[in-house]
């Protein structure tokens, strides 16, 4: 299978890439790792006259720590995020989420920025970013701005990006001592799209009282969504199996999954979804107690 014919550009910086997108407004698309875009082009689910390949832009794949945050360049591959010692140590949820994406070959090509901009409700990165209350930085030839994870996903496959804007990096807060995170994902077989998933990030005080709770959901709404009800149910409470079970139960209120002939009915997904929220929270609790992230 081949994509429809297109013109191909390899800009050297974001300004150049943004100019190309503006010039070919409505007919152009950014290509990063291509693990979502190339399949949809090949299947002719979509076509673009102009493909702007940003993979050659220097400095867009760096992973660094700055002022209590970790910054991940948009072109960092899932595999690079998974393998980063810094992320493993200080933002384990991101590392674990990366390890659940696709397969080894896909993780070697696919990028965090590309995955986020694809804005597939069954994408994994969005849930992790929501759980960690991360932000993305987007740039165009006019300048840069920041978008919070909660504001980034407008609708299925629709990120909050202007036509000439390019996601340049992702920043996530470092939660530090007595914090842990985990991603629980259900898939029918290795490498398939998520049936559903739950990303959680916790931080507790010395009495085990939840000081921070972040819960992002995969395939349980029209975009990656936050489970506000479950977060509210747990914040300020002592972290116990009982408080976790209560929070997981209330997470159903936030779920609005699609009925799906392949991956299950909406009812099924809500049932299993709240179970996965519970499992993720329990695992995060166990990691806190075991002293690992």
């Amino acid at each position: 299978m081949y994509p429809a014919q297109f013109q191909y550009y390899t800009p050297k910086n974001i300004g150049e890439a943004s100019e190309l997108l503006r010039k070919h407004s409505g007919e152009s698309k950014v290509l990063a790792g291509g693990m979502s875009l190339i399949p949809v082009l090949k299947l002719r689910l979509t076509r673009f006259e102009h493909i702007v390949d940003i993979s050659g832009i220097k400095g867009l794949a760096d992973i660094s720590e700055e002022k209590g945050h970790i910054r991940i360049g948009a072109l960092a591959t899932h595999g690079e995020v998974e393998a980063s010692g810094l992320i493993r140590k200080k933002a384990f949820l991101m590392s674990e989420t990366a390890s659940h994406i696709g397969d080894e070959q896909v993780r070697n090509m696919g990028t965090i920025g590309g995955g986020l901009c694809h804005a597939d409700p069954s994408g994994d990165w969005g849930s992790a970013l929501i759980a960690m209350r991360g932000t993305v930085q987007v740039s165009s030839s006019d300048g840069s701005r920041e978008i919070r994870a909660d504001d980034f996903f407008v609708d299925s496959f629709t990120p909050a990006l202007g036509e000439d804007e390019i996601l340049s990096s992702v920043t996530i807060p470092v939660y530090g001592e007595r914090s842990s995170g985990t991603y629980a994902k259900l898939e029918r077989r290795a490498g398939d799209f998520a049936v559903l998933g739950a990303a959680v990030q916790l931080k507790v005080d010395e009495q085990d009282v939840c000081k921070y709770v972040g819960i992002g959901l995969t395939s349980l709404g029209m975009t990656n969504i936050r489970s506000e009800s479950a977060e509210k149910a747990l914040i300020g409470k002592e972290l116990t199996p009982e408080s976790i079970a209560d929070a997981a139960e209330s997470s159903r209120d936030d779920m609005d999954p699609l009925d799906d002939a392949i991956r299950g009915s909406a009812e099924y997904k809500k049932e299993v979804g709240s179970e996965y929220v519970k499992r993720a929270l329990l695992e995060a609790m166990n990691r806190l107690r075991g002293g690992t992230k």
Partner: peptide, 11 residues
């Protein structure tokens, strides 16, 4: 790095 060459542009 291992990649799936059916999903990588020759370019």
């Amino acid at each position: 790095k291992s990649v799936k060459s059916c999903t990588v542009l020759a370019a």
